[in-house]
Design a protein around this nucleic acid. Structure first.
Lengths: 201, 201
DNA sequence: GTCTATATTCCGATAGAC
DNA sequence: GTCTATCGGAATATAGAC
């Protein structure tokens, strides 16, 4: 059970990722040094290179892991056969719930796109496009129920509106994540003028 | 009329601002060096310090100038006595038009907030709050016409949706700024369920 | 696996010549 | 007002001891 001092391979790896995530989100990729990350973990800078080939890979793997996990979670959470209005509500609730639980990852995944080398940027952009396609498909499949002139535009408007929540939401605020989601479900429905919303009038 | 070689005070100042804006928007504040800015202008790094006390002031003045100009332009463009629906439409059209003409300034003004020293950050945040108040007042003044449960939430959702345009709009795309604004006016009206929109149904 | 030490390059900012 | 030269420090990444 005893472990030699200075040997922590199973634990140091994840701690480096956590420290990098926290510091990148707070100060930005370019403003954070490998020394700062090492200090946060509690090792010397040189030790990081036992786990990561270079700083760029640290950022890229954080972003790629986030996008892949997001797509997997979306596939698991969204019911493909749902009726259009339920599908839209499901997407809004999933998006807000998932993103509010990972604000740092969300933040760096679109703030630090500039810091990615071109090949890495292309990978992340492709994954992001696949996620946006999920919402666009919902709007497109429901075109008989919704009233949307430009599906692509509505997709981009909805995603921007929903993701914006991560910029101001605070756990200590007056609204719970569920309360926020309730309001955004209604705003999203109104935007596409879903018949479920208009009926009560 | 002849000017001594190496003396360009009236022209170099603005060119430094332009170069810094372009480079900060493309690569991020922390990733850009004073040497790079100087190279873009065509001078040596030391010459920058005849115009700017330090790098931080360069960023802060770009952001402060942008926010002050935005507030001035909003005051000039928005009709205080307009009926609620017209006021909302006016805000949407102003916001999209103004922001699409200054995508680099918009970009750094919310991407580089982290790079501001605390006192500078407070100044910019206060100016941003004053701008958001313009929209919140429109929604609040029209509470008899609009159907909005949570004015603050709707304000934040609308601003996020509108500002998101600057992230994907391209001059060469299929939509003109006016066409984009038309669509967003309709989406904004639907979100607050303005009666002008629902009447035709 | 982590340490210390270091190679190499670059940073922001300043000083003094012209 | 711009130049060259430089100060003092910090950056990424590597080498070799333990």
């Amino acid at each position: 059970m005893a472990r030699k001092t200075g040997s922590h391979s199973e634990i140091t790896g994840p701690r480096i990722q956590d420290a990098a995530l926290k510091l990148f989100a707070r100060h930005g990729y370019a403003a954070v040094s490998m020394r700062q990350i090492a200090a946060e973990v509690g090792v010397q800078a040189g030790a990081l290179y036992n786990y990561v080939p270079h700083k760029q890979a640290l950022l890229f793997e954080l972003m790629r892991g986030h996008m892949v996990a997001l797509l997997d979670a979306a596939d698991a959470a969204l019911e493909p056969a749902a009726r259009p209005d339920a599908a839209l509500e499901g997407f809004v609730r999933f998006h807000i719930g998932y993103h509010l639980g990972r604000v740092d990852l969300v933040f760096i995944s679109y703030m630090e796109l500039r810091a990615l080398e071109p090949e890495n940027f292309s990978v992340i952009e492709a994954l992001r496009g696949r996620y946006e396609d999920r919402l666009e498909a919902i709007l497109s499949d429901g075109k008989d129920v919704f009233d949307v002139k430009d599906t692509k535009l509505a997709t981009l408007a909805l995603i921007a509106m929903l993701t914006g929540v991560t910029n101001w939401f605070r756990e200590s605020g007056r609204l719970s994540p569920e309360g926020v989601a309730d309001s955004y479900v209604e705003m999203a429905r109104r935007m596409v003028r879903s018949k479920e919303v208009l009926k009560p009038r």
